[in-house]
Simulated scan of single mutants.
Amino acid sequence: MPLDVSRVSDEERLKQLGYQQTLSRSMSGRANFGVSFTIISILSGCMTLYGYGMNTGGPAVIMWGWLFVGLMTLFVGLSMAEVCSSYPTSAGLYFWAHRMAPSRTAAAWAWFTGWFNALGQIAVTAGVDFGAASFLNALLDLQFGFTATPGHTITLFGIILVLHGVLNTFGVRIVAFLNEVSIWWHILGVVVICGALVLVPDHHRSTGFVFGEFVNNTGFSSSTYVVLIGLLMAQYTFTGYDASAHMTEETIDASTAGPKGIVRSILVSLAAGFILLFGFRSCCLSGLDDGVFAGRA
Results as ranks from 00 to 15, higher is better:
Tyr225Val: 11
Ser222Met: 02
Arg281Phe: 12
Gly51Ser: 08
His164Met: 14
Gly291Cys: 09
Gln21Pro: 05
Cys84Gly: 01
Phe112Tyr: 10
Thr22Ser: 12
Gly77Asn: 13
Thr224Lys: 01
Tyr241Asp: 05
Asp253Gln: 15
Leu228Met: 06
Leu163Val: 13
Val61Asn: 14
Thr155Ser: 14
Ser41Gln: 03
Phe177Lys: 13
Ala118Gly: 02
Asn168Gly: 12
Thr149Phe: 05
Arg264Ala: 08
Gly120Ser: 07
Phe170Trp: 06
Thr239Asn: 14
Pro102Phe: 15
Leu67Ala: 14
Ser286Cys: 11
Glu213Lys: 09
Asp289Pro: 03
Phe170Val: 07
Ile174Asp: 00
Cys46Met: 08
Phe214Ala: 02
Ser182Leu: 04
Leu277Tyr: 06
Phe274Pro: 03
Ile266Tyr: 09
Thr237His: 12
Gly208Asp: 12
Gly18Cys: 08
Gly92Lys: 00
Phe146Val: 14
Leu3Ile: 08
Asn32Lys: 06
Ile160Glu: 13
Ser221His: 14
Ser79Cys: 15
Leu49Gln: 07
Val190Ile: 13
Gly258Val: 00
Ser9Pro: 10
Met233Gln: 14
Leu231Ser: 07
Phe146Ile: 14
Leu270Trp: 15
Ala126Gln: 11
Pro150Gln: 10
Ile266His: 10
Ser244Thr: 04
Val181Thr: 14
Asn137Gln: 15
Ile187Ser: 08
Ile262Tyr: 06
Gly77Tyr: 11
Thr125Cys: 07
Ala108Cys: 09
Leu142Cys: 09
Arg104Asp: 02
Thr207Glu: 02
Leu188His: 03
Leu167Pro: 07
Met72Pro: 09
Gly240Lys: 12
Thr22Leu: 11
Phe211Met: 13
Gln143Phe: 15
Leu288Ile: 13
Ile39Cys: 03
Ile174Asn: 00
Thr248Asn: 03
Tyr236Ile: 06
Thr207Val: 11
Gly219Ala: 08
Val215Phe: 00
Asn117Lys: 07
Gln21Asp: 05
Phe112Glu: 02
Thr56Met: 06
Ser90Thr: 03
Val35His: 12
Arg99Glu: 10
Ala257Asn: 10
Gly29Asp: 00
Ile39Asp: 02
Thr149Glu: 05
Val268Ser: 11
Val210Asp: 13
Leu276Tyr: 13
Gly151Lys: 10
Tyr241Leu: 09
Asp242Tyr: 01
Thr224Pro: 00
Arg205Cys: 06
Val35Asn: 05
Phe238Gln: 05
Thr153Gln: 12
Leu188Cys: 12
Thr218Gly: 10
Met233Val: 09
Gly145Thr: 06
Ser134Tyr: 10
Gly258Leu: 00
Arg296Tyr: 00
Leu14Thr: 01
Cys46Asp: 01
Phe135Tyr: 15
Gly171Gln: 09
Arg281Gly: 14
Ala31Glu: 01
Arg7Gln: 14
Phe209Asp: 10
Ser269Lys: 05
Glu180Leu: 05
Ser282Trp: 05
